[in-house]
Simulated assay, not measured.
Amino acid sequence: MTIPLSVLDLSPVSAGSTPQQALRNTIDLAQQAERLGYHRFWVAEHHFAQVAGAAPTTLIGLIAAATESIRVGSAAVQLGHHTSASVVEAFGTIDALYPGRLDLGLGRSGHRGGQLRSAADRPATAPAAEPVVERATEVRGGVVIPPPFNPAKLLDFTKFAAGFEALQLPGAQSLPYTEQVQQISDLLAGTYTSADGVALHAVPGEGADVQLWLFGSSGGESAQLAGRSGLPFAANYHVSPGTIIETVEAYRKAFRPSARFPRPYLVVSADVVVAEDDATARRLAASYGHWVYSIRSGAGAAEYLDPATAPPLTDAQRELVEDRLVTQFVGAPATVVERLTALQQLTGADELVITSVTYDHQDRLNSHRLLAREWGLSHVRAA
């Protein structure tokens, strides 16, 4: 049976447009995704960049209000920027009004501030603390697996580190990721006690019908914790395609059955642009590399450029983003579905989540529409 498809939206700001319009576009896309039969609609958390998803919990509430049945969630809340109580109370508030529709996705990105500060202070000529072993790009079962991206190639950590500082109160320290996930789980379940043994109850939040998810791009802490906890897991092929195999394997190896999930439940992400034919899709995706380069240069995601006027990438720029270019799913509906099917078969994913960025919002709507039709979403029963 064909597996469900879901949507991850980044609320990108196109060159010449505004964050306000980007948010309206996100609401519009969510409504179309629901009509087309997509199972979930997730939004990301990014700060100090030209993507408008800086406040995902607020946006999730607005999307839930504008839709009727599609599951809505975070992909993912950056826990290093939030307390456990604030996360549970915020999602509990939305669930109180739109019960049983929320996915609370949790990620480690916000816990990396110390690493970013250290990297920002490191001389440009200093070697990376953990050298990455380079390997050649390979194709497994029709899926491109490039070398893992080496974070040492990032050109400038300064803005990342400054952004982390701005998102925390002076002197504040993030809890260890595993401990914070447990706190959130306990607050939802009503079993939380403080270090002094005081029972605390989140109102709203306790008892909310919210599904916890963990997100990860490697076979490390997130994948293993999701497995040990019997939670569903989202593996980020679109962010880190070179590590997808080890990420999936680590989750499955660590998995222990839970009451809700007797077996692993895996979602895998993919960057997708679909058009009526391959040539048109390649044209629409032509400025994707520029956007990824703006992130890896350290400036943060820039406005998404018009492919009709964007200059070609230089050789040095293309080298920095090559892994993301060769793993983007671009083409006519049949072309993309063939590649997505290969990704699903290689990873054994129970569901795929699609993220798509184009300069023109109508092209993005059309991409999701064409993919839904080719995938046969109207005939898919979601898990």
Rank of each mutant, 00 (worst) to 15 (best):
A124R: 15
D121C: 11
A66D: 12
R122F: 00
V51M: 12
P99M: 10
F41G: 06
A119L: 14
L97H: 11
G107P: 01
R108F: 04
F91Q: 03
V51G: 01
A49R: 02
V133Q: 14
A52W: 07
I60D: 01
E134G: 00
G113K: 02
Q50M: 12
H47I: 09
A52V: 04
E89Q: 15
E138Y: 11
V72H: 06
A119D: 13
I94D: 02
P131K: 07
V87I: 13
R108G: 01
V51W: 07
E45S: 06
A64L: 15
A129F: 15
H47A: 03
P131H: 07
L106Q: 02
R122I: 01
S74T: 15
Q50I: 00
D121P: 00
A96V: 07
R71T: 05
Q50R: 13
G110K: 02
A90C: 09
A136F: 13
S118Q: 12
V51N: 09
R112M: 10
I70R: 04
A85F: 15
R112V: 00
L62F: 11
S69C: 11
D121N: 14
T58E: 12
A55E: 06
T93K: 01
H47S: 09
A128N: 15
E68I: 04
F91M: 14
A129Q: 09
P56C: 09
I60H: 09
V87E: 08
G113S: 05
